[in-house]
């Protein structure tokens, strides 16, 4: 059943509102807008903070990833720069020495546990033969002990099986240098020869294998207490764990 009072109320409300809306549409009445959300400003701040936090977390993860990628790239570029530098040095060495046969890149460490050797990616196909010397810009590395068409094995100067005829650059005293694991020793230099710590050791070329004048290392110490000869410890100029490219030169 429809009540009169309620119908009248509804009509009154509607009519009043229609008038109100009409005058608002004509801009004759402008009512202020209530921003309820302003009352909830602290909550909005909390919401924004949470949103910011999540965004920052995400951004942080992305940046970390980017840093990692960039550091990888940087390492790669820095290794390229180093390689470029080394290759330039080797090339300058090749220009200086006309007896260089090939320049090889070290591809692996020695395959046997008895010998201290390294392998390079150049072999007989590139003119390399057994007993050729291997050098870097720092000095003598060793000699070729086995040759294959596309690779060669180099016996390092620190191997006990290695020996070379050497000379103390300053005093010109001659002796035989051989490997001793991680260093080298010079034998057969008489006690009366003056050998000082830091003297440079070069090849003498008397063995017919190594060309004359290739730097090997520097004198670390000299022991005159035993026998007729001094025992001179030599530190190689070229650390064996930092060999990356070598130049192979013909027999002396």
């Amino acid at each position: 059943m429809i009540k009169k009072s309620s119908i009248i109320s509804l009509i009154l409300i509607t009519t009043f509102c229609i008038f109100l809306i009409f005058y608002q549409s004509k801009k004759e009445i402008i009512l202020p807008k209530f921003y309820f959300s302003q009352l909830l400003k602290p909550l909005i701040l909390v919401k924004d903070s949470i949103k910011d936090f999540l965004l920052l977390k995400q951004e942080n993860a992305q940046l970390k990833k980017q840093i990692f990628e960039l550091s990888l790239k940087e390492n790669y570029y820095s290794s390229l720069v180093q390689e470029n530098k080394r290759l330039k040095e080797i090339l300058s060495l090749k220009e200086q020495r006309k007896d260089i046969v090939a320049i090889g890149k070290v591809i692996s460490k020695g395959s046997t546990k008895y010998l201290k050797t390294i392998w390079i990616d150049k072999g007989s196909a590139h003119g390399i033969k057994k007993d050729y010397s291997a050098v870097t810009t720092n000095g003598l590395v060793g000699k070729i002990v086995s040759v294959y068409p596309e690779s060669s094995e180099i016996l390092l100067i620190t191997d006990p099986n290695f020996s070379v005829s050497v000379r103390i650059e300053r005093s010109r005293a001659e002796g035989i240098l051989s490997g001793k694991g991680d260093k080298c020793v010079i034998k057969y230099i008489p006690l009366e020869e003056e050998v000082l710590v830091g003297d440079r050791v070069i090849t003498s070329g008397l063995d017919g294998i190594f060309p004359e004048g290739v730097i090997i290392g520097a004198v670390k110490s000299s022991d005159k207490r035993k026998g007729l000869f001094q025992i001179i410890e030599v530190i190689p100029m070229q650390p064996e764990n930092k060999i990356e490219e070598v130049a192979v030169i013909k027999r002396g």
Binding site: S6, T14, L31
Partner: peptide, 18 residues
């Protein structure tokens, strides 16, 4: 109050409620 126009919701809520 939140819409800047007073009236439309008064009418709609009154009619639907009724």
């Amino acid at each position: 109050l939140g819409q800047e126009i007073i009236g439309p919701s008064i009418i709609s809520k009154s009619i639907t409620g009724y």
